[in-house]
Nucleic acid binder design. Structure first.
Lengths: 221, 221
DNA sequence: ACGAGTTTACGCCAAGTGTCTTATTTTTGG
DNA sequence: CCAAAAATAAGACACTTGGCGTAAACTCGT
């Protein structure tokens, strides 16, 4: 058995993540990924992952287990019943902590931002998202901070969070690579928590019955 | 001079907008755009727009004048000095009103969401964005609602707004096409204004020095 | 050290793309 | 109505891509 295969797979995944993050999913060919990985085997992606779908699956599963564990840990440590801020923190901080654990430069945030944005990537995300909880389904309806927010509005607001977190993290990751970053991943996390709480609990001046769903798919925090 | 050329250009632009919105910028070839436009001239995009850049420029300039005028109109009608809500309203409502003015189905919101997300599109957006004002540069530092929000945090929060508006509008536009939409474009606009005000004015629990900039480029509201 | 199994290298092909050229058709101004 | 201009159609070409097949190189247990 080739134990080397793990190394080759890792190299391919890293190359793909970087190229996808920098140029977008659809702008990168399997051949380019293989070349970036340093191999002359232009069918490497097909060989190791069975094709584009397998590659995306492998990329999307990276770090999923750690983040899920960390989320459970944070939510356990909070008060019972948890406050809105605790719930939001439990969903956002595992994410920024995960990004903080990666060597600099990293491309994970920017890659996932691309995945969530582009139709071809969103398709791959759908199956993966099913394995993760969505914040909109987790928020209890009886939180005191959200008493004035109707379920429709709350659900629609929760949909915004994924894109918000992804976008800010992608931006910060880019700054980190350029050496222009101020602050830390943890400060980014708290910034996002503040913003998310303000967003979710904002006063409703115009009640509305519209509800967002479908594309773009909310990124599963 | 071919007066027909205007019609051909319009058809090409509509085809491109639709295909870009549904499949993403990088997943659509110039040939596919020409075919969708009903012409057998597979070089139509090059002939009428000089290439991909010209096509993107033409697409991005659509509706810009109307929206700018409407924005000025709304901001003029508000109180002096304007409140935070008035400023935000003046930047968001022209946008939802513009979308409301398009026939159903439309693809503009989804197209622009793609442009703002994908690197290749973001590049095209940069020059266009320079012609539009950015909300982060418009927000006065002395608004009473934002007294507790430091400039760094405020600037970073303002960056979120573009993606938020684009994402929600893209989602609603899709629902509209599917016949699943509840509410109106106007209600979407007020929903976004509420969310934006809550986001910008949210209490800051952890002061931070990080500032977002660079990619993803904030969509110029 | 050897041979089976795994990984890599690389050639080949059909399909698709952008660009450039050349007819052919359509439109316009006189 | 007619010629000039513009628009469309369609061919040629170089290039890239994904998929497939085969040969070489490598790894590992024995």
């Amino acid at each position: 058995m080739g134990r080397h295969s793990d190394r080759a797979r890792e190299t391919l995944l890293n190359s793909a993540e970087e190229l996808f993050a920098l140029h977008g999913i659809d702008a990168v060919s399997n051949r380019a990924i293989a070349e970036r990985a340093g191999t002359a085997n232009h069918s490497a992606v097909t060989y190791h992952f069975g094709g584009r779908e397998g590659l995306m699956r492998a990329l999307l599963s990276r770090g999923r287990a750690e983040m899920a564990a960390r989320r459970a840990e944070l939510l356990d440590a909070g008060s019972a019943p948890p406050t809105l801020r605790e719930i939001v923190t439990g969903h956002i901080l595992p994410w920024t902590e995960h990004l903080a654990s990666l060597p600099v430069p990293s491309w994970r945030a920017r890659f996932l931002y691309q995945v969530a944005s582009v139709p071809s990537g969103a398709e791959a995300l759908r199956e993966s998202a099913a394995q993760s909880m969505r914040l909109e389904e987790i928020l209890p309806g009886d939180l005191p901070e959200l008493r004035e927010v109707s379920p429709n509005v709350l659900s629609s607001r929760a949909r915004i969070l994924g894109g918000m977190v992804m976008g800010i993290c992608a931006s910060y990751e880019g700054q980190l690579e350029q050496g222009e970053a101020r602050g830390t991943w943890l400060s980014v996390g708290y910034f996002l928590v503040d913003a998310a709480v303000g967003l979710l609990a904002a006063p409703v001046t115009h009640p509305t019955e519209f509800v967002t769903r479908g594309s773009p798919p909310a990124f599963p925090l």
